[in-house]
Structures are given as structure tokens and as C-alpha cells.
Nucleic acid binder design. Structure first.
Lengths: 238, 238
DNA sequence: GTTCCACTTGCACACAGTTCAAGTCGTTCC
DNA sequence: GGAACGACTTGAACTGTGTGCAAGTGGAAC
């Protein structure tokens, strides 16, 4: 019977919890060690470095995404579902978006997701090269959408960590933004109707843009070559 | 005659140079001080904090973007031009994309850009609310597109800073990615035709996705309400 | 019971952001 | 012309964080 010991999965899980709670800047090895009930440096034996730990946690997050079954779902629905799932996942883990900008996150989890994403667009009737571009377009659209909220989340967490009166600082920075925006007619118009720049129903904006993008992609299919569910896609691992 | 002294603009300019050359992680106050010919701490008197410095440099970058003249350009061309300019700017300053994920970058430069972006879609015939969503969609699409390259750039710079044999580490990490990708049929197919995941003409993918998105947006205009150049848009500051 | 090896620990180093008290040097006011 | 002022600059030092290292520690295998 091995002694009760740390293991990689447990570390990655705990790190994910900490990242969700405290953000990317909020994660430090000593805090992680404390939460794991061991010395900070013990973690290094299992994951090698902080960067690698984040890469592991990041890749794991992709496995939370439920992939659509192409045999029973038409491509448009499947694409929307995947984009929505990804969007939700990135909202749960805003730090992943930040990590994505700092180093390359690519592991089994993302590979699983990417492959299915390509499958969706190939099932739609795109050529390989087109499916590549279509999948990349939708992916980057969703990623870009998550960037703003990720920044806001990161900022909020940092403020509430550093100082007691996070609310006030937040309000001050918002006020300064309003002051600047008020100098431009269209931005000012937005300020008068809504309270904050991003406050205008971000979820609807996401759906709007996604639908528009998918429309545009659909139009790039050879005319009336639309493929019915189950017609061309082979079944694979789900 | 004031003594030859530091000033904010000069600091921001130098910081931008350093950021372009070394990336977001590569910027540190002592290196910046050295490049400015003064002590690291002198910078603090002018910009307050590193975060604020980056925010200043980040906002300044938006001013590099040439805005289209709506009186002489149809909205579709204008939108494409703005997106392309933004894309190019983010390629020149990959650190901005990272900064965008960490804290809110909003200043006069971005406000100037955002306002014109809204103008483009209002000129197209969108309602205010729709223009909001359309502008946000295009913006996030471009931003998302820049995220991958930004990560690659950041990683490359960090590797070449930390160790002599950056090439080898890069190759190793690439090889691991290939190994994972090879387990999925469609990813494997890509590996066999192209050399790397993102190597397949990223510029074309950007244009493809942008055109698709704009098509989708155009379809959301009330049918045949397209607006000719100069018809509805008032002239404003350029 | 000895040896071994997977793991853990505390110490310590390096480096980065930032603060602070003490300068320095033009300018301004008498 | 000199003294007080204030805009800047400086070097030392504090803090927090990632990480290497050498010395443990305890279960398992022979």
C-alpha cells in the first residue's frame, strides 16, 4: 500500500479550483501547496513547472466539452452546440483565455475537440482546406468573445485581492472610461442607453455574431450541396 | 530651460519598442530604465505603475490605425479595411493581445477606433443595437485571430531569452503536439499535408473568416436597404 | 533488516515590482 | 544674488514568487 501521496491528477484538479477562484495571477505555488496540504515544492516533482501545470489544467478543461454526435445532428446545429459549449467552458475558466495568449496550450483534450470541430465542417460538405478555415474562424470568434470577460474577471479578482475597497477602484476606472467615451458621439449614445460598455447583453451579442458567421460560412458551401444528418459522416469515438 | 528630463511620451514610446522586441514578459522596469538612461524607479514618477504603463502603451497602439473615410468608402470596404488594419496592428504588437486578456485596455485611442467602427455599421443601415453587435462581432473575431500568433510569439521570445537552444525546445514541443495530433484522423490528415497546425496560410484563413462574417452580417440588414457611400453618414473628425 | 526508490521538505537564490527617504538642479520670489 | 520651492532622480531595501538543491522519510522488495 503506497503511502498517502500527491498525484498529478489531484494537483491539476486543485490547481483548476484555485485558478477558477483566484484567476491566473492568483495562483502561486505556495498557496497551491497549502491547499494540497504539502510543501509548495512537492508539486514540482509531479508537474515540473508552473507553466506546465497550467498547460495541464488548461488542456483538461477541453474535456469538459460535450461533443455533438454527427450521426444524429445536422452540421449547423452541431457547430452551434460546439461553439456554445466552448463559450460556456471559457466563461467557467476565464484564466484559460489568458493562458492561451501567453503560451501554446495543446494537449489531448484540445486535440479531441479540434478533431470533432473539423469533422463538423467536413460533414457539412466543406473540403478539407475549407473546413480548416471554417473551424478556425468559429474557434477564434469564440475565443475573441471570451477575451473581454476574461480581462474583466482578472481585473476584478486582482483588485479584490490587493485592496479592501475593490468596488471603489472599479467604479473609478469605469468612470474614467465613461469620461473618455463621452467625447465620441456613438459611444456617448451607448452610455446614455446602457450603463456600461459591455453591459448590453453580451450573450445576445455572442449568439448574433455566431449566427452571422455560420450564415456566411454556409453560403460558402457549393450551392445546394447541403448534407443530411448521417449521410456522410462515419461514426467515431464520442 | 528645463533640465533634460524624462517625459511620459518618451517612456511610453520606449516601452512600446521594448515590448515589441521582447514581449510582455520581456518588459521589466530595470531594463526599461537602462534603455532610457535613468534609474528604473524614475519611471514610476511618470506612469505610476507597470500596469498603467502597459495600458498607456496599449492605448497608444490604437492610434496607429488609419480610419476609413465613410463619405467616400462603402461600409463593406470600410469594415474590411478597419479589420485588416487592426489585424496588422495586433500582429505588430502581439503583447497587446495578451494585455487585453489581463486587464481592461480602454483609453482615447481605442475610443477613437470604436466610435468609427460603430459608424461603419450604422452607415451600413444597422440600427444602433445591431451596429453594436456587429462591431463587437468583427472586433472579437479579429482579436481571437491574433491570440494564437500572440501566444506563439510570446513563447518563442521567452524560449530564446531563457536558453540558448530555443530552436531545439521549440522543435521538441512541436513534436509532442504532432504526436498527440496524430491520434486523431483529421488532425493527422492536416499534419500530412502541411507541416504545422497553424502553418496553413493564416492570412488566408483570416480573410476567409472575415469575409464570411461580413456576409452574414450583411444578410442581417433589411433586404435591399444597402446604403451608398456618402448617403447617410455625416462627416466627422478623421 | 537492509537497501532502494518514490516522494517530500526546508533552505536559499535570483529576480521583479514597488516604496521611501534623501538627494539634485532649474526656477521663482524677495 | 541668495534662499526657498518643487519637479524630478536616485540607490537602497522590502516583498512576493518561481524554482534548484541537498537532505530527509517511509513503504516495498529482496
Amino acid at each position: 500500500m503506497p503511502r498517502d501521496t500527491l498525484n498529478r491528477d489531484q494537483i491539476v484538479k486543485t490547481a483548476t479550483d484555485l485558478l477558477d477562484a483566484e484567476g491566473l495571477d492568483g495562483l502561486n505555488m505556495r498557496a497551491l501547496g497549502k491547499r494540497l496540504g504539502s510543501a509548495a515544492t512537492a508539486v514540482y516533482w509531479h508537474v515540473g513547472s508552473k507553466e506546465n501545470l497550467i498547460a495541464l489544467a488548461g488542456d483538461q478543461a477541453w474535456n469538459e466539452i460535450t461533443l455533438p454526435d454527427l450521426a444524429t445532428t445536422d452540421w449547423r446545429t452541431a457547430a452551434t452546440q460546439m461553439a456554445t459549449e466552448l463559450h460556456a467552458m471559457l466563461t467557467r475558466h476565464p484564466w484559460l483565455v489568458q493562458a492561451f495568449g501567453s503560451f501554446v496550450v495543446f494537449g489531448p483534450g484540445k486535440a479531441r475537440h479540434d478533431d470533432r470541430s473539423l469533422a463538423v465542417f467536413e460533414a457539412a460538405g466543406f473540403t478539407e482546406a475549407q473546413a480548416d478555415q471554417a473551424a478556425a474562424s468559429v474557434f477564434t470568434f469564440v475565443l475573441g468573445n471570451a477575451l473581454g470577460p476574461a480581462a474583466a474577471d482578472s481585473l476584478a479578482k486582482r483588485l479584490s485581492r490587493d485592496s479592501g475597497n475593490a468596488e471603489e477602484l472599479m467604479r473609478a476606472s469605469m468612470a474614467k472610461a465613461h469620461e473618455i467615451a463621452a467625447q465620441y458621439p456613438r459611444l456617448r449614445a451607448r452610455l446614455e442607453t446602457a450603463s456600461a460598455e459591455y453591459a448590453a447583453a453580451p450573450a445576445e451579442t455572442f449568439e448574433f455574431g455566431l449566427a452571422a458567421l455560420l450564415d456566411g460560412l454556409e453560403a460558402r458551401l457549393a450551392p445546394s450541396t447541403s448534407v443530411r444528418p448521417g449521410t456522410s459522416a462515419a461514426r467515431e469515438e464520442s
